[in-house]
Nucleic acid binder design. Sequence first.
DNA 1: TCATAAATTTAGACTAATCTAAATTTAATA
DNA 2: TATTAAATTTAGATTAGTCTAAATTTATGA
Lengths: 217, 217
Amino acid sequence: MHSFTEENYLKSIYHLLLSKDSATTNEIAAAIGTKAATVTDMLKKLAEKKLINYARYQGVSLTEQGRKSALVIVRKHRLWEYFLVEKLQFKWDEVHEMAEELEHITSVKLIDRLDEFMGCPRFDPHGDPIPDAQGNFKQHESLQPALLLSKGQCAKIAGVTDHSASFLQYLEKSRLTLGQTITVTEVSNYDLSVMVEPSNKEFNISHEVAKNILVLL
Amino acid sequence: MHSFTEENYLKSIYHLLLSKDSATTNEIAAAIGTKAATVTDMLKKLAEKKLINYARYQGVSLTEQGRKSALVIVRKHRLWEYFLVEKLQFKWDEVHEMAEELEHITSVKLIDRLDEFMGCPRFDPHGDPIPDAQGNFKQHESLQPALLLSKGQCAKIAGVTDHSASFLQYLEKSRLTLGQTITVTEVSNYDLSVMVEPSNKEFNISHEVAKNILVLL
DNA sequence: TCATAAATTTAGACTAATCTAAATTTAATA
DNA sequence: TATTAAATTTAGATTAGTCTAAATTTATGA
């Protein structure tokens, strides 16, 4: 089993590797909120345990074993988030910190029972896919940033790329929550105007916001 | 907030103080599974933080603040055990280790929501009382060891004093679970014979076992 | 391509929690 | 009460994870 700290490193590296194929010491330090020197020490330890591929100054990637371990943590995190929102009625912007602790509860049997108890959900409250017990998961097909929509297009909100509480609260206030259908009524250089259904209220959202909302046509 | 380790010390001291009014260094070491020297260091730290009353060589007791902190941990432990048994279908002998981890999840809001979600249970799966958010709880009135029953008496199983998995499994196999009604049909020097309802099967249980089963008349 | 900036690593130190071994205090009893 | 045994504490060391400051490597661009 891995320590609490090792798990956090694996998880952070996993997330960094979603958008590139090598993560740097500084990026990891920023993600974890620690110093580069500390990261270097931990990278040596994780390499020793064959959880990452590491060569000095060259950045890191996960080994197959490391990826598996990371996916277990991601699975736990997302299932607990689902539990907190669906069973304990927390808002989607409140659950991250709690899930950061709960994801380190070791029992695999517990997480499998929790999964079953909730009906094996495939997506967490932010639209992120929940890996199954084998680490397999499917992202929504054809998910794209709302920014790419053109005038007249209609789409359903299915995810976000910014998970910060402030962004999620902004969306909540604007009724731009998961599952919501939006229609683009206007596109300018500065923002999109969208019609939110079923409330049928019109709305402007900035490029920055539209970039971080993921939709399905 | 207290560290994971500090919480374990407070919890162990709390449990030791249930049957006496001072806990010794060695008792704490045995309860936690560590060495006496280690305990001494931690006792100094807890005393520094005003969580325990400590004088060298004299044993320890909890301060009001220490007791409050211990009760929060006991509350968390027992609510999680209830959740694991009632919602996730674990057996009463399987939940202890998981609850030992879950009890350290910090969020108080989470535990209060969990409490509410489960309908504010007053007793955990072993019959132990669950403190409320203020740390108040009521033990069953007139709870007594089954050992004290005399021939012909009828009583309901409402708790255990031995929480080990092996004891709980033994009881499970013998249908001697919480809520079960038993009638004493015979008392010898070596054991009690009891009639278990509603299965109406007769049974012998040793003094040692009868001592660790708590019943209500 | 060479100087410099940025990124990374190494060296050395710190803290929390732990240990063993030795010293001290308390308790038990002859 | 004096001796010895048991319990407890102190002293000094260890490990995991962290830090700062200095040294090294890589990348940039004049």
